[in-house]
Design a binder for these strands. Sequence first.
DNA 1: ATAAAATTTAGAGTATGCTCTAAGTCAATA
DNA 2: TATTGACTTAGAGCATACTCTAAATTTTAT
Lengths: 141, 141
Amino acid sequence: MFYSISQAAKKFNLTTHTLRYYDKIGLLPTVGKSSSGLRRFSDNDLNCLAMIECLKETGLKLKEIKKYFVLALKGDETIDERMQMMIDQKSRIEQEIKSLKQNLKKIEFKIKYYQTAKNVGESNVYNEYPQMLAEHDKLFK
Amino acid sequence: MFYSISQAAKKFNLTTHTLRYYDKIGLLPTVGKSSSGLRRFSDNDLNCLAMIECLKETGLKLKEIKKYFVLALKGDETIDERMQMMIDQKSRIEQEIKSLKQNLKKIEFKIKYYQTAKNVGESNVYNEYPQMLAEHDKLFK
DNA sequence: ATAAAATTTAGAGTATGCTCTAAGTCAATA
DNA sequence: TATTGACTTAGAGCATACTCTAAATTTTAT
């Protein structure tokens, strides 16, 4: 089963422009062409796209993603290297989740701060509420 | 207490170039200048920088961060708007953490897949292990 | 057969966030 | 006093990831 570029784009909420751009930079090395030059996306190409989207969403640069697929194309002797890329990516994601959780706490404090400020009717809560100030310092310093 | 641009940069692991850039785009509206034109970062300015870093790390664009500080400068009548910005940002962060956790699972599957492939001594594990294929489909489709 | 819709290419343009350079000014020290 | 180092500005350049255009070709529908 083959898909046109717009069918493939639709499946991943991308534009055809984006898919052609990915092809151009070598991110889709297995996508074929029909006799008249139209791109034909196979099921395997769609699996690649799913992986591209996954890696993109976790912050991997397109250059790195390309490196991954180029390695995959080389065959079994690159398994170790590809596995190491995924292990590295795993720890980057874990670190990112950790960082987001910490920053979420700061944002939640800000919301609480604004609620207090609204109740008190003034925004200069820091001076009035030493306890809040202490909490602020703990979070932001 | 005041800090030079390089002292401020050091505290936040930024370059002086970056701080001047932030100043230029209006992200540091309260930073003053000495009589001879040198920037003077107050403790409050450093607090702003801490908030800028927090918002940056959670993916907010500099334009939005600027909007936040411009609102803060306007005073109490913008508290509601600023609080809404933080509430919106909170849900974006929560969504982002969710997405990262899902993608982490996919990466972890890939690692497991490579380990299996290594044990079996071939990379075409999908055909040999229908169970793994099913797991792959569940994660990637 | 023909018109409309989809595809192709090369290449230009855009948005974001820096990053660096050049030329000059200012402050501290030997 | 001279030099070193930090600072200033304007503005150019860079990396990433698209995004769009134009002109030509192909496919699909009537």
